[in-house]
Design a protein around this nucleic acid. Structure first.
Lengths: 185, 185
DNA sequence: GTCTATACGCGGATAGAC
DNA sequence: GTCTATCCGCGTATAGAC
């Protein structure tokens, strides 16, 4: 991997683990095995690196979600597959966690990808749910947008519960609880 | 308000806005209008202050929730009232946000109240849901613990969506989506 | 109780040599 | 491209005077 790539990857990990405020250029360099001068040669500073890291993470996330949601199966099956997808629950969501970072939210450059990713995700899920409803598969009286937001919220909130409990269990409980409700509609 | 009280209050606000890692003793002192020496006279340091602040926030939160959940109405009405309760959506949950802070999670003293608060909340909601089920009011085939986790997760995740969108709308959408599902069960 | 002085390392970067 | 030197202010205290 090239030095810029290693720097971006190490920034991605640190942003995930410690957030933007908790991540220092020093720590990025050390984890990447790169020197001070090298880092500032390839990137203009911490915000620039963070932008590259967030963009890459957001892109991967979208691709992964799209693969499931555009895959085979009924709408309910695909939403269910998305909810039950394997996750590193205790690490939380690398994009969602940025939402808690005041410096990320204050910078339009950094905030943009976060906002877009969630807007896209909710829209995409709503489209799948609307499709299922039109086909008469499920959820006759449900508002696709509201249901989609609930689905995403259960995941994001599930991470919070899991970290609070230091256990993945509440995450899976929350998903099961939502899935039980969805399956009756 | 006494100086220690002002210090605790200012720590509470800063923890809410900026998290533990993003909150400095200096900032606490300035917001409280207290000097360096004064702060270290009353508290042993940042962790000590944070402990007092988190304890106070957790206590208030439990009291507020308990008032709604032990109030009048059917189980479904009380859960609904809890979900629809007025909230400063864009500020997020002052306890939930601590979950993202590696230094809070790494310190058992600070972590304790966070863990307990969510454990209590899920239990308390599950008890209300179980009560409703026994009375035949609602949710005949639902697992109270799973449903309770989903309820809490929707709130915590709703905050994430709202902050990502810089708008309370997705929070309320998620709550509506969950409530619609609950009302059919 | 509160203030001021002092300390030491880190955060975040720039400059210039190699 | 990468390294080392240097900078300045902040983070997080401790010490001791008032």
């Amino acid at each position: 991997m090239s030095t810029p790539d290693r720097l971006i990857e190490s920034t991605r990990e640190l942003l995930w683990e410690r957030g933007y405020v908790g991540t220092s250029p020093r720590a990025i360099q050390q984890r990447a095995g790169a020197g001070q001068g090298s880092m500032y040669h390839h990137f203009s500073g911490k915000p620039d690196l963070a932008l590259a890291a967030i963009g890459r993470t957001a892109g991967e996330m979208r691709a992964g979600v799209e693969e499931i949601l555009s895959g085979p199966g009924t709408a309910a099956e695909r939403v269910s597959a998305y909810l039950r997808r394997e996750r590193e629950v205790l690490r939380g969501c690398p994009i969602g966690r940025l939402t808690q970072d005041p410096e990320v939210m204050a910078d339009p450059m950094l905030r943009g990808p976060v906002e877009e990713t969630f807007a896209w995700l909710r829209d995409r899920l709503a489209a799948v749910l609307a499709e299922g409803r039109e086909r008469g598969e499920t959820g006759a009286g449900l508002d696709p947008a509201a249901t989609a937001s609930a689905v995403v919220a259960v995941l994001q909130g599930g991470y919070v519960l899991a970290r609070a409990a230091a256990s993945p269990e509440p995450f899976h409980q929350a998903v099961d609880g939502l899935l039980a409700l969805l399956s009756r509609s």
